[in-house]
């Protein structure tokens, strides 16, 4: 008899993994117990950091049968600091460099593939800045499925005067290594629907598999359960689409 999902026993906690350049960084691993082969999910945290709500998402993936690993992208600048303090420090310093992000995701994916019950498949998901970083990772690494939740500045230029050198990355689209699920809010300004439509059109042109959904009555951060932007209808449907998508592409 198959156990109901909510009865899935998991383990979860912080570990150390090798990130970009071999740096030892903190990460949060949540995984089902037992020896059943499992797909892996790299969870890229949003700009506010490696926070409680993000780690809760990692445990949700584990309950649904995936080994989920969330690297703390701010480990280097703020080891041991509270997530909000770490985010403020990294923000003031100009954010996470793209090259380092890709290296950290590569390290997380490698760690997932090294687990004793790994099935060899790894997906990536990220929210907000993590949505853009998910697209970047899926165009830079060999990934099996990617989920971009309202990532901005994939297509559009950042406004003038930004203190960091974040560039549009739509030029990387020919290298997209896997199917892409995009979940967006119709009321979001970054990315606004015209930006996600432009990305979809470019992926169509390139023949890259993708599935985009834009929810009415939802703006940026509609998955964030601890923020006023949370929209229950969009988030519930979005989670169903995420699990259906990973169920298809991360099965052995």
């Amino acid at each position: 008899m198959t156990e109901p999902i909510t009865a899935q026993t998991i383990t979860a906690g912080p570990i150390t993994i090798s990130g970009h350049g071999g740096d030892q960084i903190e990460a949060y691993l949540a995984r089902p117990t037992g020896t059943t082969p499992r797909g892996g999910v790299v969870l890229i945290h949003h700009m506010p950091g490696y926070d409680e709500a993000t780690l809760e998402m990692a445990r949700k993936f584990a309950v649904h049968g995936y080994s989920a690993l969330c690297p703390n992208l701010y480990s280097r600048e703020a080891p041991g600091a509270a997530p909000d303090d770490a985010a403020a420090a990294v923000r003031a310093a100009g954010g996470v460099p793209d090259e380092r992000l890709v290296g950290d995701v590569a390290g997380a994916a490698a760690h997932l593939k090294s687990l004793d019950n790994a099935n060899g498949k790894v997906g990536v998901i990220g929210h907000c800045s993590g949505g853009r970083q998910t697209f970047l990772s899926a165009c830079s690494l060999d990934i099996d499925a990617a989920v971009d939740c309202y990532g901005a500045f994939v297509v559009n230029e950042v406004p003038a005067g930004f203190p960091i050198s974040m560039k549009p990355i739509i030029g990387l689209a020919p290298d997209l290594s896997c199917p892409l699920l995009g979940l967006f809010g119709a009321e979001d300004q970054n990315p606004a629907p015209d930006e996600t439509a432009a990305l979809s059109a470019e992926l169509d042109r390139l023949g890259k598999a993708h599935e985009f959904h834009t929810y009415p009555d939802a703006g940026h951060s509609f998955f964030a359960v601890d923020r006023p932007a949370y929209r229950v209808a969009a988030a519930v449907d979005g989670w169903q689409k995420i699990f259906a998508f990973f169920g298809t592409h991360l099965a052995a």
């Binding site: 700009m47 901005a152 203190p163």
Partner: peptide, 9 residues
Amino acid sequence: MCTYQTEKV
């Protein structure tokens, strides 16, 4: 939106 615009003093 997530702005990266930061005034520093």
